[in-house]
Design a protein around this nucleic acid. Structure first.
Lengths: 146, 146
DNA sequence: GTCGATAATAGGAACGATTCTCATTTTCAT
DNA sequence: ATGAAAATGAGAATCGTTCCTATTATCGAC
């Protein structure tokens, strides 16, 4: 049905690894594309009204992560949340609520992001560390928990 | 026995909450002060040669976290690692190895840190988020995994 | 379009990190 | 010393996640 540019990009990437874009996997990707921030397996299970069993959900997440479609994010209580990888969703950072664990995305303005990348460059130069990415986590209280 | 400045700071903070600095808790703090980076409950259990049972270890970690002595750090496979809180160990950031999961501390120069805090201020202002702290995570490959 | 090989699924059992329970022990202030 | 409050230890329970296995769906070759 719907066949967006995003889906074609993803299908192509999966095909490279002999991995199929099944309805369950497409549903997961749709949910994540619509979400405001990273979602856990349990949250996705609700988002999808239980139409994808938990065991399949976990397997889908693992497969999509291995294929580079999803990025994991490790939070409190051992909960792993996933979001679309940066090459699909665009580069962004995270606001993490210390009270409820919710994570929201923030996109920095070009000027601020440029300044941040400059900082990262300076840090890694002096630390002999081969940087591949960076993420600024701002901890605090979200609106609901304020 | 040993009664360092660090210990006195911690004892004072705990006393404020009617929390005792027992031998088990002191041992945990010593291990963490000597460690190069965050340690998990299982790692501390080994560090202490099992002299503190796991259930007590977890309780100690929870108490010390609640008292603001330790900061948690959530990693892969649902493992939580702890390190001394920033007011004890100094503000720093993390280099996370995407290959082996190791976490190393980096301290930014004053100038860079100031610039970063300025960025955080700008971000949170526009996001209506009550920021309490921030952490820059730089992902890449450590020397061993390069 | 059917066949066979390969990939994916669903359900439940198993696992491992963490948390909880509760009876016992330690500690502190008196 | 004594009683109240805090801490401990051993094991059971919890919960997110992973593993196992039998069944089902999908793709390419014919």
């Amino acid at each position: 049905m719907t066949n967006t540019k995003l889906e074609r990009q993803i299908a192509a990437r999966l095909a490279d690894g002999g991995v199929r874009l099944t309805t369950a996997r497409a549903a997961v990707i749709h949910s994540l594309a619509a979400a405001e921030g990273p979602r856990s397996a349990a949250e996705l299970y609700d988002d999808l009204s239980g139409s994808v069993p938990l065991s399949s959900l976990y397997r889908s997440l693992a497969v999509l992560e291995a294929a580079g479609i999803l990025d994991p994010h490790h939070g409190t209580r051992g909960i792993t949340r996933y979001e679309l990888a940066e090459w699909l969703s665009g580069h962004h950072h995270h606001l993490v609520c210390v009270a409820c664990g919710a994570v929201d995305d923030v996109r920095l303005s070009d000027a601020i992001e440029a300044a941040l990348e400059h900082l990262v460059g300076e840090v890694t130069q002096s630390a002999a560390f081969a940087a591949e990415g960076h993420s600024l986590e701002i901890e605090g209280r979200c609106r609901r928990c304020a």
